[in-house]
Design a protein around this nucleic acid. Structure first.
Ligand code: MN
Ligand code: MN
Ligand code: ZN
Ligand code: ZN
Lengths: 130, 130
DNA sequence: AATATTAACGCAACAATGTTGCAATTGATT
DNA sequence: AATCAATTGCAACATTGTTGCGTTAATATT
């Protein structure tokens, strides 16, 4: 089995996730890292974290990709079945860990992962919009 | 008001959508068009079709973007509230027009659009996988 | 049918994002 | 300390999408 190592860059990335209340893009993380490592390395760290189920990937309607740290204990087969909210105004993406969609699927579909992203105005922007 | 025109390229794109059972990427459409027009034009046509609610955009977990023709009559405020299925094996993306997620959102969120994409194995690949 | 208006187009150039190969480095294990 | 391979940096490349601008052509007007 391929063992995964703790490097300075990976530790720094995890620290950034720890401090952030919102999901982060590769670019945002790279900036926050202050070029502690090459951007390719950051991509590879994110890939590893996703594979190890420490972080999950969120794809927005506008195509941007963000990452957020999981708040659960990884299980055998992991499905991120909670919703995400993407604010069209402040562009922040947040996990709605308590919002889980229910749906009825036709037979013979095997679901491995879901992406449920709502976009619109977050409470902060909604209120300042009145 | 900006009027929208019917051009040869736009007509060809719509014909391609008419024939396709699955959602199509810009690249797939461009190939199918056999370079009838420049790729930039195809991007602009797709943008227009999305704006006019004739086509809707689907963003996959892997980041790929696809488009599908709407099967509804455009309303005032349009939310694509049906699910999409993205097969990890054949890579096809299909509209599940009858699958609509239900969910309960905290107060003060204003939803303008949703993206509910399930990924896994489609019935075709699921069966050929046994 | 000719003309006017401007949406749509082609082309070239650019930008953002992500990927790959490979030699050098470094974390973890013995 | 020596070993092994996971991780990194760098350069190069690929893909996807955007922008500016002069030209073309769809549609409305005369
Ligand atoms: Mn989340
Ligand atoms: Mn659809
Ligand atoms: Zn907001
Ligand atoms: Zn399939």
């Amino acid at each position: 089995m391929k063992t995964t190592r703790n490097t300075a860059a990976k530790t720094a990335v995890l620290e950034i996730f720890g401090k952030s209340k919102t999901a982060l893009s590769h670019t945002e993380i790279q900036k926050e890292l202050n070029d502690l490592c090459d951007r390719v390395t950051t991509y590879r760290i994110l890939d590893r974290l996703v594979n190890d189920d420490i972080v999950h990937k969120i794809v927005n309607l506008d195509g941007t990709v963000k990452y957020a740290k999981c708040h659960h204990h990884a299980q055998r087969v992991h499905i991120h079945n909670h919703a995400h909210f993407s604010c069209e105004k402040c562009l922040e993406v947040t996990c709605l860990e308590n919002v889980k969609p229910s749906y009825i699927l036709p037979h013979n579909y095997k679901v491995n992962d879901i992406n449920f992203t709502l976009s619109g105005l977050c409470p902060k922007c909604f209120n300042s919009n009145i």
